[in-house]
């Protein structure tokens, strides 16, 4: 996809994002393995390290991770125009489906088969998210950033067991990492003098 003309890339982006967004039933996180399949394995637009970076940014800033990630992947594919197309094509399917469903949603919610399917899909979702975490961990090891896995495990415990505020966690982690890098640099400067 990288060598194609801009118009062709934008068209590809719209098609792929629209499809991914239609398939991402069960919440925004479902989009991460689908991005891996379409953008890395099929489109070869970027690599796994970049997806890990984009996921990290999309998760840590405000807004829905799926939409932020669609914008970033669009940007990596075709610049700012790609970001706009990525965002619009990711938002359109839920917007259209909700507009159609809104009229008859009462029957939909009460449908026993649909609720049973939903229960099965929720269990599946847990497994898919475990897979996403595994993937990220594997990439971090490959990039020789195993420290992030240890920090991630601590953050998991603090967030899941103690139900800590995400905003607070993001800022505290940023502060600690930046402070550590400053101290390391100061030590290096000190030892070289």
């Amino acid at each position: 996809m990288r060598g194609e003309s801009l118009l062709k890339r934008l068209f590809w982006l719209f098609r792929v994002n629209f499809c991914i967004s239609c398939l991402a039933v069960g919440g925004g996180y479902m989009i991460i393995p689908l991005f891996r399949d379409y953008f890395i394995d099929k489109g070869k637009v970027f690599g796994r390290e970049e997806l890990t970076e984009m996921t990290a940014v999309a998760q840590s800033v405000p807004g829905a991770i799926a939409i932020n990630l669609a914008g970033l992947a669009g940007y990596a594919t075709a610049g700012i125009a790609g970001a706009v197309v990525g965002c619009v094509s990711a938002v359109l399917p839920p917007l259209i489906i909700l507009s159609v469903v809104a009229a008859g949603y009462k029957e939909l919610i009460a449908n026993p088969e649909l609720n049973a399917a939903l229960k099965g899909m929720t269990a599946c979702m847990g497994a898919i998210m475990a897979d996403v975490v595994w993937d990220m961990g594997e990439n971090l090891i490959r990039e020789k950033q195993s420290g992030c896995i240890v920090a991630g495990a601590v953050l998991f415990v603090v967030s899941f067991v103690f139900d800590a505020d995400a905003f607070l966690l993001i800022f505290m982690t940023l502060g600690l990492y930046i402070a550590a890098s400053r101290i390391r640099r100061a030590e290096n400067v000190g030892s070289s003098v």
């Binding site: 990290a56 940014v57 998210m129 961990g137 420290g147 953050l155």
Partner: peptide, 24 residues
């Protein structure tokens, strides 16, 4: 900063996944 954000994303996604699993 990038390392910090990767750690946070890993922890928070794991936490959300564990929450969904527990719920189901």
């Amino acid at each position: 900063v990038l390392k910090a954000l990767k750690s946070v994303a890993l922890g928070l996604i794991a936490s959300a996944g564990a929450g969904i699993l527990l719920l189901s």
